[in-house]
Design a protein around this nucleic acid. Sequence first.
DNA 1: TATTGTTATACTCTATAACTATA
DNA 2: TATAGTTATAGAGTATAACAATA
Lengths: 157, 157
Amino acid sequence: MASASPKILSASPASTDTVDNSYLRTLVGYNARRASLSIIEVFMERMAVYGLKVVDFSVLSLVAHNPGITSRQLCATLGVLPPNLVGLIAALDRRGLIERRPHPSDGRAMGLHLTPAGEDLCGQAEQTAAQLEVDATARLTATERKTLIRLLQKVYD
Amino acid sequence: MASASPKILSASPASTDTVDNSYLRTLVGYNARRASLSIIEVFMERMAVYGLKVVDFSVLSLVAHNPGITSRQLCATLGVLPPNLVGLIAALDRRGLIERRPHPSDGRAMGLHLTPAGEDLCGQAEQTAAQLEVDATARLTATERKTLIRLLQKVYD
DNA sequence: TATTGTTATACTCTATAACTATA
DNA sequence: TATAGTTATAGAGTATAACAATA
């Protein structure tokens, strides 16, 4: 965005819209958060088409690749607390995307499974996610994208 | 954490604590969010010593490097909405860390400045942040850390 | 005694509408 | 008319405590 009337720019540091954030930009945390938010933003937009929030997508995808997974395991994997997952699971159940079946070996737990409708929606959503990722990181080459993922995993693994 | 009794691991996919999240790990967004959260977690812990939240630190640092900056400019730079910055600024003012002076050329705005106490605290916090960054990304070499920052900025710039 | 799933609830963060005073 | 700062408020996200059923 080219700014208008740059004539009166004086020596005063924050006079117009020029803010010096060069120090914050030296911090990994600042950059990771900014990049994360910019990708999540696109994620939210495109998942809204399916009526899914980001965490809904994560749940569907994990259930798809781990049929019979329990709520407790989802919580541990996604960093969500059990009480906050209850309503989310119930909503996906009500929409007919997942099923809660009695766990084969633990009477307390429920095994989660995708319904055919859930399989279908999850498949579409995963394709959308793959495309979205490329779009949201369009300034990266394929190699850079791989490097970025490798370094990010090195941080949190 | 070594898991106990791995003997009874059967063919059932999500029987114990083994969850397959390999698909999610192919997504930049997932990895960026996980890495971001793991760094922010350490950030919160160490900033708590100064009674600062992450956003408080960002505000102090931006005011330090941009004396006279306005609330509006902080909002634009940090992605915070104006109503949500009001209480935050007021609290830093009450603590004697920043001052709100009338803006020299715009009667509606207030220019923000650090007090001597604010300068002091911000300096300490910035040093803590620099050390924290290295600790929170200890598995990265200095070169990898630089590369990571460059790629993250390429995503959101 | 410990754990799964659940309810109720509180706290924080983020978002929207509307007002005031200045531009 | 538009913008800076503010108030009030609503909504989403995240947190803890406690309970019933089962291990």
